[in-house]
């Protein structure tokens, strides 16, 4: 049941991210990208083998949550932040060079 809802939420986030990325406004595209990476991180986390009652700490008793996807997601969050900031820097470079933040006006990229 929860899987179904999680899958729905992830796919909804993905759809919204894609829709945002298709906007002409580059700021919106960047926001879309951020939503996409959130969706993917959520998926990675949900792909853990089982859910726990307590956090993944060795000194806690009971069913611990799956630590492996958490470690992966932690790395993914930090890396996607770095990539996102780089994208933003590019967006700014485009704005300076093409005097626009409308992706349709940025056509010089193919040369």
């Amino acid at each position: 049941m929860m899987d179904l809802l999680t899958a729905l939420a992830i796919s909804a986030l993905f759809g919204v991210g894609v829709f945002q990325m298709l906007r002409r406004n580059l700021i919106r595209s960047a926001i879309g990208l951020a939503i996409l990476s959130n969706a993917i991180n959520l998926f990675l986390l949900a792909a853990g083998a089982y859910r726990g009652e307590v956090a993944a700490y060795a000194n806690l008793a009971g069913q611990r949550s799956d630590a492996l996807p958490q470690a992966l997601v932690l790395t993914a969050i930090v890396i996607s932040m770095g990539g996102f900031a780089l994208i933003l820097a590019m967006l700014y470079v485009l704005s300076v060079r093409y005097k626009t933040s409308d992706s349709d006006e940025v056509k010089g990229l193919r040369h």
Partner: peptide, 18 residues
């Protein structure tokens, strides 16, 4: 496009999760 992608992602994710 967004809906199509979303549907595809849903099928993939739900398959993977279940």
């Amino acid at each position: 496009l967004a809906l199509g992608t979303s549907a595809v992602v849903f099928v993939l994710v739900f398959n993977a999760l279940s």
